[in-house]
């Protein structure tokens, strides 16, 4: 196998991997780097379970090539907590019962974090449209939206 050598920064750490030119970033994260927090729900960019932040932008890692990560900065769910301290979104997802099976949860947390970074005080509608790229089949989104509202409030210090 002739592969592409990629040097990239993931959750603040510089890492190297070699992958075929047509391999997705999702597969590289999961199969080469052991970062299985990003999930493959569809492989076509429709479900958002593989969401990561690439240079500050929310992307479906199943639609990005591993080779495209060269020299970029990637944030994944594995880097969201600060040591023992959970991100407010992580903590409030648990306390608001905003997850049932949990397969979509990493993607939702990444998407919600990105949303609140861009818009710290979103309306309910802005939250709903901001998270419309992430599918959840268990919760009906009710408790997810409430958890994001609570996190936004807490993070604004309101």
């Amino acid at each position: 196998m002739s592969g592409v050598h990629v040097t990239t920064t993931i959750n603040g750490d510089e890492v190297d991997f070699v992958c075929p030119a047509d391999e997705t970033l999702l597969d590289a994260l999961r199969n080469r780097l052991g970062l299985t927090g990003a999930k493959e729900g569809c492989g076509t960019g429709d479900c958002g379970a593989c969401s990561v932040i690439l240079d500050g932008r929310l992307v479906c890692s199943c639609l990005v090539l591993g080779a495209e990560a060269q020299g970029r900065k990637i944030e994944t769910i594995e880097g969201m907590a600060d040591g023992e301290k959970l991100h407010p979104l992580q903590r409030l997802f648990i306390s608001h019962a905003a997850l049932q099976c949990g397969i979509c949860t990493p993607g939702f947390l990444i998407a919600a974090k990105n949303l609140l970074e861009m818009n710290p005080d979103p309306t309910e509608e802005e939250i709903r449209f901001g998270l419309a790229g992430n599918l959840c089949r268990c919760t009906g989104y009710d408790k997810i939206v409430r958890a994001v509202q609570a996190a936004a409030k807490e993070m604004r210090g309101a």
């Binding site: 999930k39 769910i77 959970l86 903590r91 997802f93 997850l99 949860t105 990493p106």
Partner: peptide, 21 residues
């Protein structure tokens, strides 16, 4: 009552292991 679920931390940190993990 409504205590926190025991698998919560695993599921919000990406550590929970599913079928493909």
């Amino acid at each position: 009552t409504r205590p926190l679920r025991p698998d919560g931390i695993d599921k919000v940190t990406g550590r929970a292991k599913y079928g493909a993990d």
